[in-house]
């Protein structure tokens, strides 16, 4: 089904269930779908597992969702930053679980989920605490760790521009996790700065094809 163009961000996040796994794009604030996260706070879903590179910056976006006590678990590569005081406090109080995943493995696990790959052998993390308890295998003299796919019930993505059926383009390094997360969730919700008519995007320049996108909203 081609994407639905929503009137506002509240319509765009309607129906997200308690206990959902939510993929959230962005690297720091670049590509972070702040308006969709604010709408998710209003929408009220709780007991969420959030997959994102970081665990919130400052007091807005992901940090605000965490501060509302709506996140049970964070799966990310880099929670600790100079402005991650919300996550730091909740983690130290034992109010949020944390799974730390090497950044490339985080991206590749979602890529695998979106590409129908059952698991993959990865050289990252071999011999480190993050590989403890995982199956390893030697292939052509090199040791690899078995990593499992990581899928979302919902992905919340910040992109630059969409057409009315959901083809997406991004801008500069705000692209980051968006294209991979768009492949890896059951329902993909995208906030963009602008929606254009079908045919107005150069097909050679489309980064996320419309097949992956369910809902688009301008914010």
């Amino acid at each position: 089904m081609s994407a639905v163009l929503c009137d506002d961000v509240d319509e765009a996040v309607a129906g997200i269930q308690d206990g959902s796994t939510v993929l959230v794009s962005g690297f720091g604030m670049a590509g972070m779908p702040v308006d969709l996260i604010d709408a998710l706070i209003r929408q009220g879903a709780r007991d969420l597992t959030v997959v994102s590179n970081n665990a919130g910056n400052g007091d807005t976006g992901l940090a605000a969702l965490l501060a509302e006590g709506r996140v049970r678990k964070v799966i990310c590569s880099f929670p600790r930053q100079s402005d991650s005081w919300v996550f730091d406090r909740l983690y130290r109080e034992g109010r949020v679980e944390l799974e730390v995943v090497p950044q490339g493995t985080l991206a590749e696990r979602m890529r695998a989920a979106g590409a129908g790959i059952g698991a993959f052998y990865c050289p990252t993390g071999v011999g480190t605490p993050l590989a403890e308890g995982k199956e390893t295998r030697e292939i052509d003299g090199r040791t690899y760790v078995l990593e499992l796919p990581l899928a979302g019930d919902v992905a919340l993505i910040g992109a630059h521009r969409a057409d009315r059926i959901g083809n997406l383009v991004y801008r500069r390094t705000a692209r980051n996790f968006g294209p991979v997360m768009a492949t890896a969730a059951t329902t993909v919700v995208v906030q963009v700065r602008e929606v254009v008519e079908v045919g107005a995007l150069d097909p050679e320049a489309v980064v996320t094809p419309s097949i992956y996108v369910d809902r688009v909203v301008v914010a």
Partner: peptide, 28 residues
């Protein structure tokens, strides 16, 4: 430009010949 940062999340610039790609490609 808030859309253009480095790994430390500081704003940076692009040089002629620059290319952008998504995270799975970057780590590949």
């Amino acid at each position: 430009d808030p859309d253009l940062t480095n790994a430390g999340k500081q704003p940076v610039t692009e040089l002629p010949g620059a290319a952008y790609f998504h995270h799975a490609d970057s780590f590949a």
